[in-house]
Simulated scan of single mutants.
Amino acid sequence: MDKNNRFTILGCGHSESLLHYNNNALVSNSDGTLLIDCGHTAKHALHDLALTIGDIDEIFITHVHGDHVFGLERFAYETRFKYQKRIKLHYHPDIYHELWEQTLKGSLSKIGEGSLAFDDYFELCPLTGPSFVSCGNHYDVFEVAHTPGKKTLGLCVNDKIFYSSDTIAIPEILSELSFEVGFHDVTLSDWNPVHATLASLIDYPEAIRKKLYLMSYEDSWPMFEQQVNAYFSGFAKQGMSVEF
């Protein structure tokens, strides 16, 4: 297994953020690069890291919300017409209908060539179990607790990196995972019922809290930075990387 793995926060912002890109991430090594989620800001975020859509080999989708999937339209068009390749797209089979039929089909199914299907753009790789392999890395996936009725997955890479995607507090799941560095969803408001509040995360055991960077936060984050630094590893910052 490649020892030069790098986990990079492509964007760390809440869906309403004006200061940060959508909460997406990259896992890269000499075998290739996996994009975790593909929000509408993904192309711009890659550009800031001197990368292009053509540099992405695989994508994993955690769930169907705009800040996690709306960038797929741009990726589909550019990979087909500009880069002449199909990116591997990993996703839970339960979200196929929501992702293609309800989200992407309206803009991608009719082009100058005629009618196209989802797999004309991507190499579809629906999950067949609780794990998958990408670019030589092992990913364990598990359901987290986001919007009721919406399948949402978190993941753990090589038992080293935990990534929650969007979720409320999930202490039972975290207590069962082995990881060295974690990235956890947070909301800094007190009204959002589908993201983890700061207070709920402070209730995590200290041994878990100190391994966590908080992500997907609102633009008011500087007001909370001192408190977050006291209880956690800090806020995940856009462009930060962890080698593992």
Rank of each mutant, 00 (worst) to 15 (best):
N4R: 12
N4P: 05
N5A: 08
N5S: 09
F7Q: 04
T8L: 10
I9H: 07
I9C: 11
L10K: 04
L10H: 08
G11F: 14
C12Q: 06
H14D: 15
H14G: 05
E16Q: 14
S17L: 06
S17D: 04
S17K: 05
L18C: 07
Y21K: 06
N24W: 00
A25D: 02
A25F: 13
A25S: 15
L26I: 10
V27N: 08
V27H: 13
S28E: 13
N29H: 10
S30P: 01
S30V: 10
D31V: 01
D31A: 13
L34K: 01
L34P: 00
I36P: 05
D37F: 00
D37I: 02
D37S: 15
C38H: 03
G39D: 09
H40I: 06
A42W: 14
A42E: 03
K43Y: 04
K43F: 03
L46P: 10
L46H: 13
H47F: 13
L49T: 07
L49H: 11
L49N: 06
A50I: 06
A50H: 13
A50R: 09
L51Q: 14
I53M: 07
I53L: 14
I53C: 07
I59W: 02
I59S: 00
F60E: 03
F60G: 02
F60I: 01
I61N: 01
I61T: 09
H65Q: 11
G66Y: 15
V69E: 04
F70V: 01
F70R: 08
G71P: 09
L72N: 06
L72E: 01
R74C: 09
F75Y: 13
A76T: 06
E78P: 04
T79N: 14
F81L: 11
F81S: 09
Y83E: 06
Y83I: 07
Y83C: 11
K85H: 10
K88A: 15
K88S: 15
L89F: 09
L89V: 09
L89R: 05
H90T: 00
Y91L: 15
Y91E: 00
Y91K: 02
H92R: 10
H92V: 00
I95P: 07
E98N: 13
L99S: 01
W100D: 08
E101S: 13
E101G: 07
T103Y: 14
K105L: 06
K105N: 06
G106L: 07
G106T: 01
L108I: 10
S109T: 09
S109V: 02
I111E: 14
I111L: 12
G112F: 15
G112I: 03
L116E: 07
L116W: 01
L116F: 05
A117T: 12
A117R: 12
Y121K: 02
